[in-house]
Simulated assay, not measured.
Amino acid sequence: MPVLLGGDANVYGMARSFFEAYGVHSVAVCKKALPALAHSRLVKTAVEHPRLEEDAVFTAVLQSLAKAHPDKTCLLVSCADGYTMQLARCREALAPYYRFACPAPEIVQSLGTKEGFAEVCAAHGLRTPQSVALPCGAPLPELPFGWPVIAKPADSPAYWNCRFPGKRKVYLANSAAELEEILAATAQGGYRGAMLLQEYIPGPNTALGVVNAYCARDGSVPWIVQGQVLLQERTPEGVGNYGAILTEPARQDTALLTALADLLRQSGWRGYANFDLKYTSGGEPVLFEMNPRQGRASYFCTAAGANLARPLVEDLVQQAAVTLPVLRPSVWYTAPWGVVRRFCPDKHLLGRAASLRRRGCGTCHLLAPGEGPARRAWYWLRQGAYWRKVFANG
């Protein structure tokens, strides 16, 4: 029984992967289930608790759930940064009830935070953008890089709980005045953590890449997959997330994947890891961050033949060697395909993706085959709302 920590589109992708690989339904455990799980037949139950961020509540809820299913092998999967850190802290209390892959808290803190990740990359000769951490309320310093500047929260779990108009995952400031407005808005919205100010790496959406990896219990990294971003999401709240990804065996950057696998192995990581990156005009990869779990768009791996659930089950349930991923060309998308077609900046890549989609190798993330009429109605209403937001924001 997969127990998925979270309530968003990442959870839906994981539940879909488990169902397609093993025919099992998942249980979502979260503070509040988001619309991405609405009316789904894949997520059988959503266990919601408003105080789930408290470790005592977290362990009590999960222990109770496992005790209610003594006939099941309960597999616990974090689908959000904060839950990974919480699982790392509560691992001893949950180990008798669940099987899970999660590193120790200090390793999560080292690799799974933006500042720690930059230090680890530097030690491994991997490039990250120049960055400055700005504490909440601190005056804007002299930056060692020019404008525009990327601004994003250093503490993703704390920022996730904030709600305010104009909230985005990532901001682009073209001037000091714009940056001051962003900092004021996030502070007024309740975010008290540091903001990470980063050097902007120029280039279109198609210069972006995403990598997912699974690190086995023996420390090896047998499963790692790269996707080519076609488009970032176009809605205000979706900026910084991916709207469409092309996956092709020939476009796997072997040198990069080898370096990332070495980084994870030498750092002692366990379980899923997700990297966001961008290639410079000279072809050098620049790593933005590592998410300490599979990424929100990670179902692109399953769509390309590398089912996300299999390495975890093979490693922890079957206790066997993890099967190496064998990829097939595919295109994954969560934005309406019309939006992808209209806004993808590389028409050559778009043509390849469109050809795959016509041949049945395209997958829309949030509508799995076999979903009922309520889910299908929700999905098409969502597609229409997406278009309206795109037009409203130019």
Rank of each mutant, 00 (worst) to 15 (best):
F288T: 03
A303T: 09
P373I: 10
Q294I: 12
V331R: 04
E289W: 09
V331F: 06
G362F: 06
L366V: 08
C344G: 00
K347P: 10
A306V: 12
L308T: 06
L324F: 14
V339F: 01
T302Y: 06
L367F: 08
V317W: 11
G362Y: 05
A368C: 15
F288C: 04
T334G: 15
P336I: 03
L366I: 13
L350W: 00
Q318P: 00
F343K: 01
E289A: 08
G370A: 07
F300S: 07
V331G: 05
H348L: 14
V339K: 00
A320F: 05
A377L: 12
G305D: 05
W337L: 09
P336H: 03
Y333W: 15
L366K: 08
Q318E: 15
A377Y: 01
V326T: 15
Q319N: 08
P292S: 05
L349R: 03
C301V: 03
V326H: 15
A368E: 12
Y379W: 12
K347W: 02
A335D: 15
F288Y: 13
R375S: 13
A353P: 03
R358T: 10
V331P: 05
L324V: 11
E371Q: 14
A368S: 12
N291T: 07
R357Y: 14
A303G: 15
R293E: 00
R358F: 03
R341N: 08
W380M: 11
R352T: 10
D346M: 02
A368D: 12
E289L: 10
W332S: 03
P373E: 04
C344N: 01
R328N: 09
P325H: 09
L312Q: 09
A335K: 01
H365S: 14
F343T: 02
R328K: 13
W337C: 07
A354D: 13
W380H: 12
G295R: 05
K347V: 09
V317E: 09
R328F: 01
P336M: 03
A377R: 12
Q319V: 02
P311V: 05
L381H: 14
A321L: 09
S330P: 06
N307K: 01
Q318C: 12
A309H: 04
P292I: 04
A309C: 07
T363K: 15
G351W: 01
C364N: 13
C361S: 14
R375G: 12
A353E: 02
R296K: 10
Y333R: 10
G295N: 10
R357C: 14
W380I: 06
P345C: 00
L312W: 02
Y299N: 11
G360P: 08
Y299S: 09
L356I: 04
W380E: 10
V339L: 02
S298I: 06
A309K: 03
G295D: 06
T334N: 12
A354P: 00
T363I: 12
T302V: 08
R382G: 12
L327R: 11
F288P: 01
V326Y: 07
W378F: 13
V286L: 00
A297S: 13
R376S: 14
E314S: 08
E371P: 11
L367C: 14
G370P: 05
L356H: 03
R293A: 01
S298K: 04
